[in-house]
Write a protein that binds this DNA or RNA. Structure first.
Lengths: 219, 219
DNA sequence: GACCGGCTCCACCGCCGGTCGGAGGTCCGG
DNA sequence: CCGGACCTCCGACCGGCGGTGGAGCCGGTC
């Protein structure tokens, strides 16, 4: 039997979930709460396998409650929400949620989600999965190659790239086989276009805009 | 009915899948292939809703085949494999796979996976999900908080942090309420400890070592 | 007490970075 | 053909940066 609690401020939702997660499928609904703070207490008082947590609630919301439960070494939390924007997903994961399910999903998905999370796994609703995959892909070794900055000319992009790896004006001049005066001109134009005051600002700009990417050393 | 093809070089696996994905559940197995190249032909010749693709195969492997099918605007591909290391997952996603399922998963998960992918969705096996989530979290706004650099003193860490946001020595001095001479001393010590030659090098070092993190602007 | 590391400050100096005003070249499009 | 964008270069100026070589104060350790 999977011991679970439901935290949602709408009684109707709780009732519906209670029906879907029936004892016949191995679920044991041991407690209910209507706001986050109460949910945190439930998680502490009962030995639960999983908590179903709504996000939008009066008082302490589901994200905060999840953080509190995880911080207290509580049971895994399955976030159950109506809205599936990236930010709430990121918040949920950051708060330590083990799963993210949508209310619009079919009952069998929810059942599977609760089972997976209760047994220590993770769950992402299939409807949300594409975006998570996209993110994973972006973070995977084959990341976006640095692209040129539109508002800069080709030459200025070259100069900025060299600046971003720590080259001095003299070195840039040697690298590009032009005079240092030329480099200074380009550098000055770059500052104006990027609205920064010095090369330090330009480098920070480059990192913030993905033109330069951190290159963490082994270890 | 979901029209599907199975690409796997082991006949036994194909037979097992054919049993699990029975017509009773709405599946219509219209073709089978035993290597990647043949799978690509199948995808082109039959109007399929989904292709189940093994990775390890003689000749053209499942990743290449997936890339070929996606490149030709073919049906969505559900990768089905025994091994679940991060690299093959990343490869599969990069090749354009719509789903990633493990052979060790229960039959009902596979059924759901095929349904989800056939209807245009994405699927990640619950066993793989935790690592994908970890990656998503790492890429999400609330990343690991910057930690102090061990080899630097507390004060030097403060100075480096301010340098990394573009502050000049004078500004750092004002911020920390000390003399500019003091800041210069700290800055010099930082250079020596990080083995960089100037503040530009220090900033790049900070980004590479996670002390400073890119702060991409909206848009 | 002696020692050391960290934090604070000072003076001096050379150099690189950054700004300004100007100038010549190409190439492209109106 | 002329204007404009881009790339190239020059000289001069200045300020911040970085290096050197000091100094004193504090807290902890040996």
């Amino acid at each position: 039997m999977i011991r679970l609690a439901i935290v949602d401020d709408q009684a109707l939702i709780r009732a519906g979930l209670a029906r879907i997660l029936s004892p016949a499928d191995g679920f044991d609904l041991v407690a209910e709460a209507s706001d986050g703070a109460e949910g945190v207490r439930l998680a502490a008082d009962h030995a639960l396998d999983v908590v179903l947590m709504d996000i939008r609630m009066r008082g302490m919301d589901g994200i905060e409650a999840t953080r509190a439960i995880r911080g207290a070494d509580g049971p895994p939390v399955l976030i159950l929400t109506t809205f599936d924007d990236d930010e709430t997903l990121a918040d949920a994961i950051d708060a330590g949620a083990a799963g993210f399910a949508l209310k619009e999903s079919p009952a069998e998905d929810l059942i599977r989600a609760v089972q997976v999370v209760a047994s220590g796994g993770s769950w992402i609703d299939p409807l949300v999965t594409p975006r998570v995959l996209a993110s994973f892909r972006a973070a995977s070794p084959a990341a976006d190659p640095p692209t040129d900055v539109e508002e800069l000319t080709e030459r200025e992009n070259e100069v900025l790239r060299l600046m971003a790896v720590g080259a001095t004006n003299t070195e840039i001049a040697e690298d590009l086989d032009v005079g240092e005066a030329t480099v200074k001109t380009h550098v000055g134009n770059i500052f104006a276009k990027l609205a920064v005051r010095d090369r330090v600002g330009a480098i920070i700009w480059a990192y913030d805009h993905g033109l330069a990417q951190p290159d963490p050393p082994a270890g």
